[in-house]
Simulated assay, not measured.
Amino acid sequence: MPVTANVIDAEQVFDQELRLIEAAKGGDKQAYQKLYQRYIGMVYSLCLRLMGDRALAEDASQEVFIQLWRKLGNYRGDSKFSTWLHSVTSNIAISYLRKQRGWLQRMFNIEESVAVNYVADESCDQVDLDSYIQRLPERARVVFVLHAVEGYRHEEIAEITNMAVGSSKAQFHRAKQLLREWMGDE
Score class of each variant (00 low, 15 high):
159 E>K: 15
41 G>F: 07
156 E>F: 04
47 C>E: 06
50 L>K: 02
53 D>Q: 12
15 D>I: 14
80 K>P: 00
122 E>A: 14
22 E>R: 12
57 A>L: 02
19 R>T: 13
124 C>T: 13
116 V>S: 06
131 S>E: 07
51 M>A: 13
142 V>L: 06
140 A>V: 08
109 N>T: 11
59 D>I: 12
128 D>L: 14
28 D>E: 08
34 K>M: 09
31 A>V: 05
82 S>R: 11
78 D>L: 14
59 D>S: 13
175 A>T: 09
18 L>E: 10
74 N>C: 11
8 I>E: 10
104 L>H: 13
112 E>F: 05
96 Y>E: 12
118 Y>P: 00
68 L>V: 08
153 R>S: 12
49 R>G: 15
118 Y>E: 10
59 D>Q: 11
59 D>L: 09
92 I>N: 01
88 V>Y: 00
173 H>V: 13
184 G>C: 10
70 R>D: 15
151 G>W: 05
89 T>M: 00
105 Q>S: 12
58 E>S: 11
110 I>T: 10
77 G>T: 04
119 V>Y: 07
127 V>H: 09
98 R>W: 14
129 L>C: 04
170 A>I: 05
169 K>M: 09
78 D>S: 15
148 A>S: 14
19 R>G: 07
144 F>H: 11
75 Y>L: 07
108 F>L: 03
42 M>P: 03
40 I>G: 00
63 E>L: 12
112 E>V: 08
160 I>S: 06
130 D>G: 04
114 V>D: 00
36 Y>I: 05
77 G>R: 07
95 S>I: 01
71 K>R: 15
142 V>Y: 00
